[in-house]
C-alpha cells in the first residue's frame, strides 16, 4: 500500500513538474521544475529497487548538470516570449510531421510482435545474493568493459572538442604564476638601506 502511494506521489509530481518545465514563463523556473522532476524520477527508481541508479541520477543530473544549466540560464537575459514569436509559423509543419510519426508509431505498436526468442534474449536475472550496485558494476566493468572504455573515449573527444572550439589564449592578460611567486625570496627583491635623516633617499 505504501509503495503504491509513494509511486503515485512521485509519478504525479514528476509529470506535473515535467509539464511545468515546458510551460513555465520564466526559464529559471523551468530549470527548477526540471530539477524537481529529476528528483521524482530518482524516487521512482528507488521504488523499483534500483537505488544505485537513483542516487547517481541525483548526483549527476541534479548535483552537477542542472547546476550548470541553472548557472547558464540565470545569466542569460532571454525572454521566452520573443523566442516563441517566430516559432508559431512552423507549428503547422511540425504538427503534420509529428502527427504522421505518431500515427505510424501507433500502428507499429498496435501490431507489435515479439520474436519468440525475445524473452529468452532479454532475460537478465539479477545474480543471487548480490546487491544491485555490485551487479551493475559487474555488468559495466566486466561484460561491457569494451563499450564502457569506448564511451570514455567519446567523452574525451567531447572535452577536446570543447577546448579546441572555445579556448583562447589571451596574450594581453597577465597570468598568475604560483611557482614564480613562491620562488621569490626576500634577498632577491629587497634591499635594506640605511637612510641618514634629513638627506632624502
Amino acid at each position: 500500500m505504501f509503495e503504491a502511494l509513494a509511486f503515485y506521489v512521485f509519478a504525479s509530481v514528476l509529470v506535473a513538474s515535467a509539464l511545468m518545465v515546458i510551460t513555465a514563463r520564466n526559464p529559471v523556473h523551468s530549470v527548477l521544475f526540471l530539477i524537481l522532476s529529476f528528483f521524482n524520477a530518482a524516487g521512482l527508481f528507488v521504488l523499483l529497487g534500483a537505488e544505485f541508479i537513483a542516487m547517481i541520477l541525483v548526483i549527476v543530473y541534479v548535483g552537477a548538470v542542472a547546476v550548470l544549466f541553472l548557472f547558464v540560464v540565470m545569466m542569460l537575459d532571454i525572454s521566452f516570449a520573443d523566442l516563441r514569436k517566430g516559432a508559431m509559423q512552423y507549428v503547422p509543419v511540425g504538427l503534420i510531421a509529428g502527427g504522421i510519426l505518431l500515427l505510424e508509431l501507433i500502428s507499429i505498436f498496435a501490431a507489435w510482435q515479439f520474436s519468440p526468442e525475445a524473452s529468452k534474449n532479454a532475460a537478465a536475472p539479477t545474480p543471487e545474493g548480490v546487491e544491485n550496485t555490485v551487479a551493475l558494476g559487474r555488468l559495466i566493468y566486466t561484460d561491457y568493459v569494451f563499450a564502457f572504455q569506448a564511451a570514455g573515449m567519446v567523452l574525451l573527444v567531447a572535452m577536446i572538442g570543447a577546448i579546441v572550439l572555445t579556448h583562447r589564449q589571451r596574450p594581453d592578460v597577465r597570468r598568475q604564476k604560483v611557482s614564480a611567486q613562491n620562488a621569490r625570496r626576500p634577498e632577491d627583491v629587497l634591499e635594506i638601506q640605511k637612510i641618514s635623516s634629513n638627506s632624502g633617499v
Binding site: I108, F114, E117, A118, S119, K120, A122
Partner: peptide, 9 residues
C-alpha cells in the same frame, strides 16, 4: 530500440 524491442538483444 525498436530492434531491441523485437529481438530482446
Amino acid at each position: 530500440s525498436l530492434v531491441y524491442g523485437f529481438a530482446g538483444t
